[in-house]
């Protein structure tokens, strides 16, 4: 089978970048390794969002719902049974009395994310534009509200702790690679190309018989499964989690990563996630004093100011994102970034 030109770099570029970050992460000091792992999990989440928002062109504020569901499912199901009885007193006995391993918990997170996205998408994918944005946002609000208040399925408003911290450099890197590969296979598939075409011109796509509702639903489901999976990675990275950590701030931050990188390409999603995470990590370090040629220290609290200001500046100066929303190409790729 002949591959279309550029396919190799389209997958290898992001993949190699992620592997590089993973390898550098393992050489970093223990206190710095967390930043690298966090960046890799961000890649997984942003790529998941990209699969729907980037390819379909429909705005969604709801993908973090699936991250949240995946995180809490994987978290609740991997806390050791003997600890659960003490900390998760009010949950259903079925959940209380069973625990599963690390990999099964990631698969469970992906499956739940996909099923939830499919069920939600079934009615919602008929919407587009701002209506779709607000409806998916409503899903986020409901998911957050239910996770926070319904103590039969999780810890409610308290912290879910004692989750095995299995997301090390290897799992974070592999996880990000899985997300990238799935996204790549989907966007290269016939279905993915149809959806992208419908993004450019919905009327034409409809007139040649593309069922936009169905294509969007498929993308939404794939995106939901990846988001659930990324949520599993995330909870195993943190070891403890609250519902507030997978809610508004994460939604805005990850969307900003995608837009800063370039909304319409996988390469943009990966670059955006890594660039913003890297900047954020650097600023966190700077707040506690960083040594670059000479030592300088940022005042407390200025990290968010700088992070937000730089993101705003990038968007104002380069509305199509750092990558211009294009995939990486082999020849002259660095020069053709703009």
């Amino acid at each position: 089978m002949r591959r279309p030109p550029g396919a190799v770099t389209e997958l290898l570029g992001p993949a190699l970048l992620v592997i590089l970050v993973g390898v550098v992460g393992t050489t970093a000091s223990a206190s710095n390794e967390g930043y690298f792992l966090n960046a890799l999990v961000s890649v997984a989440i942003v790529v998941a969002i990209y699969v729907f928002v980037g390819i379909s062109g429909v705005l969604s504020f709801g993908q973090i719902s699936f991250v949240a569901l995946g995180a809490f499912a994987a978290g609740v199901m991997t806390v050791p049974v003997e600890s659960k009885k003490g900390v998760l007193t009010s949950i259903f006995p079925l959940l209380r009395d069973h625990s599963i391993g690390n990999v099964p918990s990631l698969l469970l997170a992906a499956a739940l994310g996909g099923v939830f996205a499919f069920l939600v998408g079934l009615p919602l994918m008929r919407l587009s534009g701002l209506a779709a944005g607000i409806a998916t946002f409503a899903v986020l609000e409901i998911t957050h509200n239910v996770l926070r208040e319904w103590t039969k399925i999780g810890p409610g408003a308290t912290t879910l702790a004692l989750v095995p911290e299995t997301t090390g450099a290897l799992q974070a890197t592999l996880g990000a690679l899985v997300a990238i590969t799935v996204a790549f296979l989907y966007q290269r598939s016939r279905r993915g190309r149809l959806l992208r075409a419908s993004r450019e011109d919905p009327a034409v796509a409809r007139s040649v018989g593309v069922n936009i509702h169905l294509e969007r639903l498929l993308a939404f489901t794939v995106s939901g499964a990846l988001a659930g999976f990324a949520g599993g990675l995330y909870v195993h990275l943190l070891g403890s989690i609250t519902t507030e950590q997978v809610y508004l701030e994460l939604t805005f931050l990850t969307l900003a990563m995608l837009v800063v990188g370039g909304l319409t390409s996988l390469w943009g999603a990966v670059v955006g996630a890594l660039a913003v995470s890297g900047l954020d990590s650097f600023l966190s370090r700077a707040e506690s004093g960083v040594h670059v040629v000479f030592t300088f220290t940022l005042p407390q609290g200025t990290r968010l100011v700088f992070l937000a200001a730089i993101m705003a500046l990038v968007l104002i100066l380069r509305p199509s994102g750092l990558t211009g929303g294009r995939e990486l190409r082999l020849r002259w790729s660095l020069r053709r970034w703009r």
Partner: peptide, 22 residues
Amino acid sequence: SPAVMLVTTFAIAFLLQAVALI
């Protein structure tokens, strides 16, 4: 594009909130 405008105003919102915090 509308998406870029909206996300930029997110960033501005966070910026102002962070300034207020300081």
